[in-house]
Design a protein around this nucleic acid. Structure first.
Length: 302
DNA sequence: GGAAAATGATTAT
DNA sequence: TAATCCTTTTCCG
């Protein structure tokens, strides 16, 4: 269950573990046998993230780029034989990667460990394994196809050279609620249900406000806040939005005298609980099939 | 042991 | 708006 930060973290893990190495690939589950055969024995050149899409470029990458989208519940499990040096945590038993945690576990039993669950693709290298389960997209692409996928995506706050203007313009072109616009990957890539709710709260913006009615200042504030939040998300491997203070002036009085919230979120999955800022019960509604959380007081229009 | 939910997105009606 | 795909985990009886 990933948002953009998870995928960027994943790309980093792939680059440090597999870049420049030949790998064997198999589909234990049997649903990606053709793809696994196409990739097996090839060298991984590099991995790249754009929004929630992961691209692993195999040699040769003109026709062999592996495209993965985790969807709502895709996940990765990594395991190492204990001999490799990685910057990631090396810890306890091998465990499932869900909330962006990329951990290399030292396996005391055998290496490689048997695949657990419905493993669509296993990538095997001498000292490390990566197992993929439950992806919504898992396909081998040509360069052209990769370009077509990327062309449909808006700027990604995690890219150093991302075009914030592009995001602003896209917002001004729609009148759907800003909360819906933030989930549109062609407007901004990598935002999911948590980041959108939290960013809107931190900016003090009413989620139902039409996208094109949000001020440029607020839109820019949201962009820059997302750059910060997501960069931190990549670093720590999970989303925490309560560690730093919202910049919105609405919160100033509160911030000078209060304690930091204990949970990781201000509004996400906090329906009915008191707002950390004003104690108003957090509201929840369904918007385009996803749950939307917000504070009626802190995020009221006008 | 079964239902529901989950950090998603596309396709059909 | 609804149905659909993909899978695991959590909660409830």
């Amino acid at each position: 269950m990933p948002e953009g930060h998870t995928i960027h973290r994943l790309a980093g893990a792939f680059n440090s573990l597999f870049a420049g190495r030949a790998v064997e690939t198999v589909s234990p589950q049997g649903r990606f046998i053709a793809g696994a055969e196409l990739l097996s024995g090839r060298t991984i050149v590099r991995a790249q993230a754009w929004g929630k899409h992961l691209f692993v470029h195999f040699d040769d990458e003109f026709s062999h780029t592996w495209h993965v989208h985790l969807g709502l519940y895709g996940s990765w499990t990594f395991a190492g034989d204990g001999t490799i040096e990685v910057t990631e945590v090396i810890g306890a038993p091998r465990r499932r990667v869900s909330e962006g945690e990329v951990e290399i576990a030292v396996v005391d039993e055998s290496f490689p460990p048997p695949p657990r669950g419905q493993v669509r693709l296993r990538i095997l290298e001498k000292h490390a394994v990566a197992d993929l389960t439950g992806p919504t997209t898992c396909a081998v692409r040509t360069v052209d196809e990769v370009q077509r996928v990327i062309a449909r995506l808006g700027p990604d706050p995690l890219h150093p050279d991302a075009d914030a203007e592009c995001f602003i313009v896209a917002l001004q072109r729609r009148r759907i609620p800003i909360a819906a616009a933030l989930m549109d990957q062609s407007v901004i890539a990598g935002i999911g249900n948590i980041y959108r709710a939290e960013a809107l709260f931190r900016a003090g913006v009413d989620p139902m406000k039409p996208s094109n009615a949000v001020s440029i200042e607020d839109a820019m504030a949201i962009w820059h806040d997302l750059v910060e939040l997501m960069t931190d998300g990549v670093k720590v491997g999970r989303i925490i939005t309560t560690k730093t203070s919202p910049h919105h002036s609405r919160f100033t009085a509160y911030l000078s005298q209060s304690l930091a919230p204990t949970g990781p979120f201000y509004v996400y999955q906090r329906t009915g609980l008191g707002c950390e800022v004003c104690a108003t019960p957090i509201a929840m509604t369904e918007l385009a099939g996803r749950k939307l959380y917000w504070c009626l007081t802190c995020q009221s229009s006008s």
